[in-house]
């Protein structure tokens, strides 16, 4: 096959890219940088500086950061345990962790709503045990819980991937040279899994930063994340220009975290999903 014919094979993908990535992105920029009458303005982008938008952005960054940190805190020990298992058993545990991902995202989050409600399953159980009821629903804590629950697999997989690739003898060598289990963890396992950790951080942080479903369902309508603000501008407020402008701001934050990954994960090791 000659070169021309081969490149023709890329045509469907090229069309897809143009139709569903390039054009929408272009439209976001068009809307974001114009006002309703179609004249150029930066007002939509700068609108992020208004107190309510700034508050939503800061809260989003904070909750995403906390969720990402919690995911890492859970995922790293888990990945370490998985690494120590024989291949067959390790992948079974991994399978159990990935299993919820096969269910619909909305359904899973709504399930948490039912669990956490004032008269929900958890409080009913606590009542039976004579313990005081929890009021987590509609708080930032509930949103963080939802984020950690939904995005944990995206942290576990890349971290496990990099840890699993470390040769047993590298760990044995560290032990042989006098390092105890803790020293081996700090000096060998942690540094060697940095690409996976970085990739896990972005894979949790970006969706957490942009989510509006989790905050809608578990935060009530009281807690507004930047995702909710943007969603409302498109649906209820029907100010597409402002929504697009705020999306562009969010894109900048995502671009920053992507550069971060590109810097630490040169070989694409952590992203081998």
């Amino acid at each position: 096959m000659n070169k021309k014919k081969t490149s023709l094979l890329a045509l469907p993908y090229g069309l897809w890219m143009a139709g569903f990535i390039a054009i929408p992105l272009f439209m976001v920029f068009c809307y974001g940088l114009t006002d309703r009458s179609g004249t150029f303005t930066l007002a939509n982008v700068l609108a992020i500086a208004t107190p309510e938008h700034r508050k939503a952005l800061v809260l989003s960054l904070l909750l995403s950061a906390v969720s990402t940190f919690l995911c890492l805190l859970i995922a790293f020990p888990l990945a370490l345990i998985l690494r120590g298992r024989r291949i067959g058993r390790g992948s079974f545990i991994l399978f159990v962790f990935i299993l919820p991902m096969w269910m619909n995202f909305l359904l899973r989050t709504m399930a948490w709503q039912t669990l956490l409600e004032k008269n929900g399953v958890i409080n009913a159980l606590l009542g039976i045990l004579g313990l005081p009821a929890l009021s987590i629903i509609n708080t930032p804590a509930a949103i963080v819980l939802g984020m950690v629950y939904n995005f944990l697999p995206f942290m576990v997989l890349p971290v496990y991937n990099t840890l699993a690739k470390i040769d047993d003898n590298v760990i044995n060598a560290a032990r042989d040279l006098g390092a105890g289990p803790f020293q081996t963890l700090i000096r060998i396992l942690l540094p060697l899994s940095v690409p996976g950790i970085i990739s896990g951080i972005t894979m949790v942080f970006i969706p957490a930063l942009t989510t509006f479903v989790i905050s809608n369902l578990l935060g009530g309508s009281k807690i507004l994340l930047i995702g909710n603000v943007i969603e409302q501008e498109f649906t209820r407020g029907s100010n597409w220009n402002l929504g697009a402008g705020l999306s562009m701001v969010l894109m900048i934050f995502i671009l920053i975290s992507m550069t971060f990954v590109a810097k630490y994960d040169k070989n694409g090791e952590g992203t081998a999903l």
Binding site: D167, N169, V170, N172, A173
Partner: peptide, 15 residues
Amino acid sequence: NRRQLNTVFQKYALF
């Protein structure tokens, strides 16, 4: 880590 001996591993196992 407490043994007074060292090992040279197959395939080197460098950090």
